[in-house]
Design a protein around this nucleic acid. Structure first.
Length: 356
DNA sequence: AAGGCGGGGTG
DNA sequence: CACCCAGCCTT
């Protein structure tokens, strides 16, 4: 029995029971696949359940507003996934009569669906013979076949896709794809792979040469930028001044507070002297309360965040600023750090800002 | 081809 | 602390 078929047999005996494995509904599979992009199963699972309950069909999804989608997406990260899903759902509603495509050719055209997701949906929903290549598959193939070509170089991506196509079981591609990924997630893990109980270790090049820790090879790590955020809390206890984030920065489409970003972190008493702050609040700004610094770590950015509550009201309003009733705050999608701060400040129940 | 995009888990 | 996670889009 070859390598791939051994994995399928292992999968039959050891697979986790996950809700999206009980359906061939392309919409439901799409939902799960996009949620799981760059996201662990355990983290994505509750979001999948909430989304499916809120939007049982792609037309239900398409009829939602972007605010509603982002609110439900709150805390999951990579929010462009949610925004792209809405575009795709509306296109499926309007151009495909609400029938979600299940062929690779059609799927690859849709916003937010790349090679991996198109292969996943078409193989799971329609048993189309397309090999998925995700982080798990890169790792399994690199180790088993002892390939040290970087997985994120153009040459490497092509090579691994070809190899995945070669080993693909064309009779049951969906099962094969699931098995490859499940095996990578459960046995052939990034760190401390479970080689001791691995059924293919005798054929594994990395195991034979003791190279599992060296593979797969990946080029260059992301450099982390430091940014300094000064957030202004302006509230009378009934309303609060909020900001809708636009453009190409982080958290596009989500809501935070009036913000002045600075190249370094000013002392609290220096905030008043910042030109941008003077522009917003006039020459004399009254700081009512300064809160402790918070660090917020993203994959590619390190945010040093200071919140200050001010008495003064702005004399200059950005177009994206608006007052909202505190009771309506729970409808807005908030970045994690804003969510935590507001929950703590207003002494909301732990989850009252989470749902709409 | 390279850079940007969240938040959480792991060792 | 570094690395990784059922990747994709823009430039």
């Amino acid at each position: 029995m070859n390598f791939a078929n051994q994995l399928v047999q292992w999968y039959h005996e050891n697979k986790r029971d996950l809700p999206w494995r009980h359906t061939t509904n392309a919409y439901i599979i799409w939902l799960s696949e996009v949620i799981l992009q760059q996201t662990r199963v355990e983290q994505g699972l509750p979001y999948f359940n909430r989304f499916l309950a809120a939007y049982p069909t792609v037309t239900d999804f398409a009829n939602a507003s972007e605010d509603e989608i982002l609110k439900l997406w709150q805390g999951l990260g990579y929010y462009s996934r949610g925004r792209n899903m809405l575009k795709t759902a509306r296109l499926v509603r309007d151009e495909y009569k609400g029938n979600f495509p299940d062929t690779y050719q059609e799927l690859i055209k849709l916003k937010g669906i790349g090679e991996y997701t198109a292969a996943a949906i078409s193989s799971f929903a329609a048993n189309e013979a397309r090999a998925v290549v995700d982080g798990n598959v890169y790792r399994v193939l690199a180790r088993y076949f002892g390939i040290d070509e970087p997985i994120n170089s153009t040459k490497g991506k092509k090579l691994f896709q070809q190899l995945a196509d070669e080993v693909l079981n064309k009779e049951q591609p969906g099962l094969h794809n699931q098995a490859m990924m499940e095996f990578g997630a459960v046995i052939c893990k990034p760190k401390n792979p479970a080689c001791g109980i691995c059924m293919v270790r005798l054929g594994c090049e990395a195991f034979k040469t003791n190279a599992t820790t060296q593979l797969p090879v990946k080029l260059k790590t992301v450099k982390v930028k430091e940014r300094f955020f000064n957030y202004f809390l302006i509230t009378d206890g009934n309303r609060i001044l909020m900001n809708k984030r636009t453009g190409n920065d982080i958290w596009t489409g989500l809501y935070d507070l009036p913000l002045v970003e600075t190249p370094t972190l000013p002392e609290t008493h220096e905030i008043v002297t910042l030109p941008q702050v003077k522009a917003y609040f006039g020459p004399k700004l009254e700081i009512e309360e300064a809160f402790g610094l918070q660090k917020h770590v993203l994959t590619h950015q390190r945010l040093i965040v200071r919140f200050v509550k001010v008495k003064s009201k702005p004399v200059l309003f950005e177009p994206d600023w608006f007052y909202v009733d505190i009771e309506k705050l729970h409808k807005l999608a908030l970045p994690k750090i804003i969510f935590k701060f507001l929950t703590n400040f207003f002494k909301f129940e732990n989850n009252s800002l989470f749902s709409n």
